[in-house]
Amino acid sequence: MNVPFRPTSQRGAFTLIELLVVISIIALLIGILLPALSAARNTARTISCASNMRQVTTALLIYATDNRDSFPPNVADSALPGGGHFWYDTEILGQYLPTGNPENTVELGGVVMPCPSDSEEVARSYTINGWASGNIDDGLLSAGNSNQNWYNGWGSGLNQSGIRFDASVKEASKTILLVEAWAQWPIAGKYYTGWFVGSYYNSAKPYGKFVKNNYPYSTYTGQAAESAICWTRHAETDDYYAGNGAANFTFVDGHVSLFQDDELVDHSDGISTLTALWSEYDYKNNTP
């Protein structure tokens, strides 16, 4: 019996509807994955930033071990090269950290100094708590006050805002050593943080030291000795000036913590939560 020949059926091209379905599925997957990838990228940058700060903090602690518990100085003196001696000077901290700053060999920058979440133009994203300064610095004083006792916090002036400390401070796990700050100083095409943060010029009160020049959130461009904490990094959005960012802090015991500002301050009352201390004087000075 002859079996009739039936040609093998061949699949034609995709129909328009099928192509649209495939494209829709791909678009849906991209919409699901992109936020996750962006969040993962931001988390990686935050972790890398914390690692950088831990290395800088370790260098500061080793320096203190080599110098009778004193941290590096912040001394303004026009008679000295570079206008003074500062914690980030290559000749001071450079022996403990790698250098990678060919545009500016006097100051440390590059390598572990910039935060990966910061602008590519930034060479240094961190600065020290001014009350950890190893030498007296008039920049921490109010105008007309140059008395060492006042600087150390034992005076009774209205402008007293902190007590200088070293690596032997009692509450090492709560006392701030290094913070993320705005890089406002332009040098040879790069930007650097100032000498310190947390001084009287930031604010006389703990609350103001945390949020000065930063609340509501905006760009900080003031070229002054003191920097201001940058709360706009490590946000849940790519908007650099978003209001839901955070900042890494390191402490005298060597650990690093990431905080949003409302974890450290009470905006409604204008006071610090005392979770992190600029110095032990915060307990006495924590008023609006």
Rank of each mutant, 00 (worst) to 15 (best):
P114L: 06
C115A: 12
P116R: 01
P116M: 03
P116F: 01
P116D: 04
P116L: 00
S117L: 10
S117V: 13
E120P: 07
E120F: 05
E120V: 05
E121R: 10
E121Q: 09
V122W: 02
A123G: 13
S125I: 00
S125H: 04
Y126N: 04
Y126W: 15
Y126D: 00
Y126V: 04
Y126T: 04
N129S: 12
N129P: 03
G130Q: 05
G130S: 09
W131G: 12
W131M: 14
W131R: 14
A132K: 01
A132C: 13
A132F: 03
A132L: 13
S133F: 02
G134H: 06
G134Q: 09
G134E: 01
G134D: 13
I136F: 12
I136N: 14
I136E: 08
D137P: 03
D138T: 14
D138Y: 02
D138S: 08
G139W: 01
L140G: 10
L141E: 05
L141K: 13
S142R: 02
A143L: 03
G144F: 04
N145S: 09
N145W: 11
S146L: 11
S146F: 04
S146Q: 13
N147T: 12
N149T: 15
N149I: 09
W150T: 15
W150M: 08
W150F: 10
Y151C: 04
N152H: 10
N152L: 13
N152K: 11
W154S: 11
W154Y: 12
G155I: 05
G155T: 01
G155A: 06
G155M: 13
G155H: 15
S156F: 05
S156R: 02
L158S: 15
L158Q: 11
L158M: 10
L158I: 15
N159M: 14
Q160S: 12
S161E: 01
S161D: 10
G162V: 13
G162E: 08
G162T: 10
R164N: 11
R164Y: 07
R164A: 10
F165C: 09
A167V: 10
S168K: 12
S168M: 09
V169F: 06
V169P: 00
K170D: 11
K170E: 15
E171D: 10
E171T: 10
E171I: 07
E171C: 10
E171V: 08
A172G: 00
A172N: 04
A172P: 04
K174S: 14
I176A: 03
L177C: 06
L177A: 06
L177K: 04
L177E: 01
L178P: 02
V179S: 03
E180S: 13
E180P: 00
E180F: 02
E180L: 07
W182H: 04
W182G: 03
W182E: 01
W182F: 09
A183M: 06
A183Y: 00
A183G: 06
Q184L: 11
Q184H: 05
P186F: 11
P186L: 13
A188E: 15
A188F: 08
G189K: 03
K190Q: 13
Y191A: 05
Y191C: 09
Y191G: 03
Y191W: 05
Y192L: 07
Y192K: 15
T193I: 07
T193K: 03
T193N: 05
G194Y: 01
W195D: 14
F196Y: 14
F196K: 00
F196G: 04
V197N: 00
G198S: 07
G198A: 11
N202L: 13
N202D: 06
N202P: 00
N202R: 05
